[in-house]
Each structure stands twice: as structure tokens, then as C-alpha cells.
Amino acid sequence: MSTNPGHEGALPHDEHGGHEDAGMKRFFFGHVPEGVHGGLKQYGWLAIFLGIITLVEFLIIVPEGLQGSSVVIAPLVILSVIKFFCVVAFFMHLKFEHPLLWQIFVAGLILGLVVALSLVVLFGVLRPTPRAFSENRQEPFVHHAAEEEHHFEALVIPTPCPVGACPQPAAPGAAVASSPGQALFVGAAACSSCHTISGVAQGVLGPPLDGIGSASANRIPGYSAEEYILESILEPDAYAAGTADGLSQDYDGNLMLSTMAGVLPSLSDEDIEALVEYLLSLQ
């Protein structure tokens, strides 16, 4: 193992006195054979040095103007890196060990840093969300909505849905749309992920829309069916359909609102018209 087994503690330490200064210098900066250890003197000085660094770190952030400011980040990081490597090199005596141990530890350290950095960049800076993911991929699919809709649907993940309540993907047979409004409904507008229309879509988060064309005329007094559907799409939170309307449960208008916030901007006026027209046709 070491080239000089049995010579542990070859450097002078407290009990021996003697060439301490030479020993100190060699211990910290010079080339020292494997397996050597320091004593009270060497480690004591190092401990004092590390203690002073800690104190300096603290003093740096004592002035209130510097607390939390970004100018202190660099000095603080540098100081703690110095502390870190002093402990590793001397307290963990990696300086006096076989180089393989350095390599193993530094490899782990670098891997850890890379993992940490990637996590921070991914989730702290780029912050992908399922919705952003589908939004970014909307454009190419809008053009071929009629042919591509079922591929597209697989990419749309509207809101995390409770277990068991997740929308079922529409049967492949249902994918052939009968009107532009229906194509949008199951395709780019992603309505089908929450709403059920027999034979077209099987979402469960929103009320079923079978027969909405006639039901919508009676939802809000004074609203025509068209006005009601339009408002339901543009401002889903304005009126929340629920048990009072003969539905099986009270629905949360905010749910649709928050999801539509990501989709609405990409829909043209014609798209909305097509949707309304399609829903009106569901008698």
C-alpha cells in the first residue's frame, strides 16, 4: 500500500518538537509521502484558519446593505470552497492518499454538481410544464388538425387529473371529424380532454356536452344559446354550471379557465365560431 508502511505520523508533532516549521510548510504545501499524518500543531493551525474563514464569512453579511445582495455571493462561495477543500485535503488527508481516491471523490463531486446544475437549469430556469410543452407543439398540428388530431391529443395534458378521473383517449374510430368545430373540439382546442360528447370524446372533468345546443338556451335567463356557449368558452368562470342546471355535480369554472388560458390565445375568431357552431348543433 503505502511506500513506507509503519511510518505513520512521520512528521513532527506536538510531543516531538524540533523541525516543526519545516514540517508545517511541507505538510501543507510540499510533497508528502503517502500515509503521513499531521499532529496537534498542523491540525490546530488548520482548525484556527477554518474558524477564521467562518468568522469572515459571517462578517461579510453583517452590514444590512449586503444581506441578500448578489455582490456577496462570489466571495462567500469562494471562501466556502476553500474551507471545503481544506477539510477534504487535510482533515480527510486526501492529500496524502493514493490518487485513485482523489479521482473517485472528485468524480462523485462533479457528478453531484452536474446533477444539481441540470436540476436548477431545468426546473428553475427553463421550467417546462406539460402545458407549455403542448403549446409549443401546437402550431404544426393546427394545420392538419383533421388528420392529426388523435396524435395531438396524446400530447395534451391539461391539468393533473385525479387518479381514475383521467380522460380516456377517444376511440380511434371517433377521430374522423364531421365538422371543423368537432375537429377543433377533439384536436387543437383540447376540449375533449375534459368534456364528454357521445361518440366523440370522453372527458370527465367538465360537464357532458351532449345536448348542450338546446340546454344552453336555459342556463342563464336572457342569454341566447349562442351567447351562453360563447361565454362558457371565453369566460368559463363567469357562470359555473352545476346541479341547479340538472347536472350530476357542481363543476369548478376555474378549472376550465386556467386550462383555456393556455389554449385560447392560439384559437382564432373563426375557430371559436366553429366551436360554438358545433356545440349548438348538439341537440
Binding site: 493514493h98 481516491l101 471523490f105 462523485g108 453531484g112 436548477v120 428553475g124
Partner: peptide, 28 residues
Amino acid sequence: INHRKLLMWVFLGSDCLFFGSLIATYMV
């Protein structure tokens, strides 16, 4: 290198990853 010592260093290297991801989570 003594195997026990080697294993300890390997473990410490891997523990860097453990704390690295927890620290990253905090920073995120």
C-alpha cells in the same frame, strides 16, 4: 488501497449526488 477505505470514498462520492440533488431542489 485498502478496500474498506476505498469503499468509504466511493460511498462519499455517491453521497455527493444525494446532497447535490437535495440542494438543487432547494435552489430551484
